[in-house]
Design a protein around this nucleic acid. Sequence first.
DNA 1: TCTATATCACCC
DNA 2: AAACGGGTGATATAGA
Length: 573
Amino acid sequence: MDWLGHFDAVWCVDFEFTAPPGERPSPVCLVGHEVLTGRRVRVWQDELRALREPPFPVGPRTLVVAYYASAELGCFLALGWPMPARVLDLFPEFKCRTSGLATPGGAGLLGALMYFGLEALDAAEKDGMRQLVMRGGQWTPDERRAVLDYCESDVAALTRLLPAMGPGLDLPRALIRGRYMAAAARMEWAGVPIDTDALAAFKHHWLSIKEELIARIDREFGVYDGTTFKADRWAAYLAAHNIPWPTLPSGKLALDDDTFREMSRNHPRVAPIRELRTSISQLRLNELAVGSDGRNRCLLSAFGSKTGRNQPSNSKFVFGPSAWLRSLIRPGPGKAVAYIDYSQQELAIAAALSGDRRMQAAYESGDFYLTFAKMAGGVPAGATKESHAAEREQFKTVALGVLYGLSADGLARKLNAPPCRGRDLLRMHKETFRQFWRWSDAVQDQAVLVGKLETVFGWAVRAGADANARSLRNFPMQANGSEMLRLACCDATEAGVTVCCPVHDAVLIEAAEAEIDAAVEATQGHMRRASEIVLAGFPLRTDVKVVRHPDRYSDKRGAAMWRAVCELCGRAP
DNA sequence: TCTATATCACCC
DNA sequence: AAACGGGTGATATAGA
């Protein structure tokens, strides 16, 4: 913990705040405790609002310590305060230290305290106090004292946790992660512009859309009870029509879409039910968190996954549900948004980190799959995307599947090809990209021997004896990809780009219409730089989709569904 | 009637 | 035993 001496002050801080779904945080109080001097501040709402800057310095000589700092930093933004220059967030540090291990108390502050055998506030008591804070409105003087005391108890807990975690910390890298929490706070603050009229119309017609879709098709089948698909009725229908149907090991009917697709081939009469089930399953928008300013905002859950990705709620976040809903994204008057994603990010990471020259060349060619197919002798040298579309698809499936550890049989099944074709394709990959395979084997060996894998910036996962080999082999791609996007988000937000949200290998940005092209160029520069830093000089390309008011964002996978729903609502698409 | 579990679908 | 990585979440149904 000698690094503490690098700072003039070390402030452990915690805010209480309210944040209704989709809204920006509204601070209720702040408690801070300076570790070196024991100085303490307790500031209530009204006084907070009067402060033009934090009640302690936040320059590079001060370390600000928090647990899940994007919440605290969101309050900084709400108060118009400058962001702290050095943030140590013990949440990602705890996750980094324990990812892959069981943490019985979870990864919250209480879970971390429990993990280190430290005294913690009772969970029920903590919940009760959060309720009191969230209630909002006015608090009696007693309640106010109770909230401040509770806030202070969390700061005290943080102060106990710091020396427990401090000795194991890699401070420079922890500060990189803390820096991302500030970027996350800015993105959570920005949010995604939503067409609230369309959203309201959909919500209003929700049930009737569902019922209408079901009524049209189920007439012939009678397998729905209201809006519920009944497995026993489906069994009865199949029996009545003499259709044998695959079952699961449990003996129940297999009702996944794959089975429906397979069965539709020989029994075309079941196809409409398949389509209906698909449509119904895509109709989910009840929980989307949209604030009073018409923007979709939710906790990004930065560092939520084992690989360090953000893990926002799929139901609250507009990029969570199926892709047709993204057409709700619509920039306001005078505004434009752009979706910028890394081209084939994980392939490029595999190529760069493995040092496989041929794989790098395939990425640099601009069409990885076709170049791979040519290198492997799977298509003639003069083949094009058009002349050999089917082969290209197969080589694409191999190239991507390999990153997940897809087996020969799995590959064959996915391609609907005989097992020997799966084996051939996999063999061609191994022969074409030998260095990649040597590296991938080494990754697995390292995980098993050392019990741990790390990204270039030290994000780690622990591997026990029961670890999944495919998961371990995939870790470098996914986790370094996560590092890359985090770094790009830091650079872009700090440079003043309005980043609405990250999407694993992409960002959505927003700007005035006249400025969007410049913002896109700047962001692409940040993303490229981030790739070079993570991959020791290997640059990644990015793809861009710009949408200007009054247009809406559209994802081709969801275009048909969007039109269908609009039609059912009597709206223009 | 409520809850837990299995299964399935969606995202990158 | 299965053999496609990381996730969240809705739904249907079995069980308490």
